[in-house]
């Protein structure tokens, strides 16, 4: 479970252009479910996901993760969850790498290297052997039907293929939580539905899925266990807690 308590995130604090992207948000997100964050552009969805995904720290408030045991925790710690709000960057990075898989709006794939290498990217700075994560990458490429492009550069792929590469990359370290920021923004309706089929697969595997989207194909999907609506950094409709 992910638990947010009075979380606020402000940028440019103390300057003329200070603004608050997330404002006093409290929320509990259950494990193994699909939670969709819905709202107009600038409503704070992406910032909220970046806070949950350990990409940045909240200006105030607490974020606790339950059911996750990073290697840096002592044996007796973290049984009832642990606070990630003030962890040093090293620890945040480790949690980000081992717990979360990210699917970005722009896919954020590295150009010039192969599809296979892009999928393996999050696994390079781990202690695992190259052969082990390469085998996993091949498996993911087969799963998403992009094996034939394994050696191709990503810039040669279509939008739908790019997204499947981004999804395969998000799964390479077998994360417990998938975070997707506007994943269907650059896809047509057919590809968007295909994406939701992949989300169903994640749910089937017991993964927690958090999606920020203003696409009805996503937030109206029957797969969504909860739809949280946001505006101006605040939650306006938090949806029924399961």
């Amino acid at each position: 479970m992910i638990e947010l308590s009075h979380v606020t995130k402000s940028y440019n604090v103390g300057r003329n252009n200070q603004f608050t992207a997330v404002d006093d948000v409290s929320l509990s997100i259950e494990s193994g479910q699909l939670t969709v964050f819905k709202g107009p552009s600038g409503s704070g969805k992406t910032t909220l996901l970046s806070l949950v995904g350990c990409m940045s720290r909240p200006s105030s408030g607490r974020i606790r993760l339950h059911g996750i045991r990073p290697a840096f925790l002592a044996a007796e710690e973290g049984n009832d969850g642990f606070d990630i709000s003030n962890l040093p960057e090293r620890f945040l990075t480790e949690i980000r790498r081992t717990t979360f898989g990210f699917i970005f709006q722009q896919f954020n794939l590295v150009r010039g290297i192969s599809v296979r290498e892009n999928v393996m990217l999050p696994a390079y700075p781990t202690t695992e052997s190259h052969a082990a994560f390469q085998a996993r990458a091949e498996e993911l490429l087969r799963l998403f039907d992009i094996s034939r492009h394994a050696a191709s550069r990503v810039e040669w792929l279509s939008g739908g293929e790019l997204q499947r590469v981004a999804i395969a990359r998000a799964l390479i370290n077998n994360p417990a939580v998938i975070i997707a920021d506007e994943p269907t923004a650059h896809l047509d309706s057919k590809l968007s539905r295909e994406f939701m089929e992949i989300v169903a697969l994640f749910k089937g595997q017991g993964k927690t899925v958090l999606i920020a989207s203003h696409d009805p194909i996503v937030y109206d999907s029957r797969l969504a266990d909860r739809v949280v609506e946001m505006r101006d950094g605040r939650i306006t409709v938090s949806g029924p807690e399961p």
Partner: peptide
């Protein structure tokens, strides 16, 4: 700019600053 963008991507998908420096 391309190299900066790549470093940003690597960090976002779980590379530490030290990994990028390595």
């Amino acid at each position: 700019a391309e190299e900066r963008r790549e470093i940003g991507i690597l960090k976002s998908i779980g590379w530490e600053t030290a990994d990028v420096l390595y």
